[in-house]
Nucleic acid binder design. Structure first.
Length: 114
DNA sequence: GGTGTGACCAGCT
DNA sequence: AAGCTGGCCACAC
């Protein structure tokens, strides 16, 4: 099999592909890896992202509403917001205001341009 | 080793 | 229009 990576590892790889200053949703990643209904697992995978050797930009992954649902898992409730604002995102009330503009679809951005 | 549950999403009612 | 349910895979108890 060419793909020995488990579901979680695949999620981490996709997450690392997210360009700086861009964000995506759990569902978009789930769909990209072939399990459109496994968005939940993507979120859970992010929970264990800190166990990975390589850094995983989990702060660039939010829910479909652009809301920072997992901010509490960064060791600090403000950490995720700080990281996103640091990359140019406008976060307000735990929600990315310009989410629509910053949204990065893996299944689209990676396919187009070739 | 089975059951529960989790940073979600989309479809039904 | 809004609320509930199912589904997905891995990990803790």
């Amino acid at each position: 099999m060419v793909n020995d990576l488990s579901f979680f590892e695949t999620v981490y790889q996709v997450a690392r592909m997210i360009p700086e200053g861009r964000v995506t949703s759990y569902g978009a990643i789930a769909k990209f890896i072939g399990s459109p209904q496994a968005a939940r697992m993507v979120g859970y995978a992010m929970n264990g992202s800190h166990t990975q050797k390589e850094f995983v930009p989990a702060h660039r992954v939010v829910n479909r509403n652009g809301m920072l649902t997992g901010k509490h898992h960064f060791g600090g409730p403000e950490t995720m917001r700080e990281l996103l604002e640091s990359e140019g995102a406008i976060v307000e009330e735990n929600q990315i205001k310009n989410f629509k503009e910053l949204f990065w679809d893996p299944g689209k951005e990676l396919m187009e341009g070739y």
